[in-house]
Amino acid sequence: MSQILRFHLNGNPAEVMAGEAETLLDTLREGLGLTSPKCGCNRGDCGACTVILNGNAVKSCTVLALTVEGKSVWTVDGLVDGERAGEPEGGESPAPRSLSGHKLHPVQTAFHEYGAPQCGYCTPGMVMAAVAFLDRNPSPTEEEVKDALSGNLCRCGGYKKYVQAVMAAARGEFDPLPERSGRNV
């Protein structure tokens, strides 16, 4: 059996059929085709499925999909700048873009520039944990960043660069951090 689930996904209204015992992760991936949240452990340990729910980073495999009725969910897919960034300027290393040619969030740029992702499987979760954290605390200490990412496992062991990259994004080493842009709704 399923029920209709209505919520806000990346700032837009979304409507989907969700099973009564289905996780938010399954609804996002199977029902809505958004495969950026990854399924690592499916038991709340690894953080690969982290999304932002009403402004807070949560593990979407521990959230029953139907409980997000009326709430707001953000995934990596919602982070890109609304406008297309245009053709990459030439030069040695043009600013990284999303596959669709959009400008990236400073956290994504920092991950790219610092070479933080290795296999990349934990990366969408890391991005969302970092963005939710910086939305709340835009000038953190390194210890605070480690704490914010402590729920995200990286089997490649790339923790150090992730932490360095989040610090760099917070310092504004790339683009300045955008306003919280309604993710806290």
Partner: peptide, 28 residues
């Protein structure tokens, strides 16, 4: 919150059931 219950339900749903279990009513 679901952080204990949902992993348990997911594990149960991912297995071939051995016994016939009664329906579960989840009350949020």
């Amino acid at each position: 919150g679901g952080t204990d219950l949902m992993p348990r339900i997911s594990a149960e749903r991912n297995q071939i059931p051995r016994d016939r279990k009664p329906p579960m009513r989840i009350i949020y």
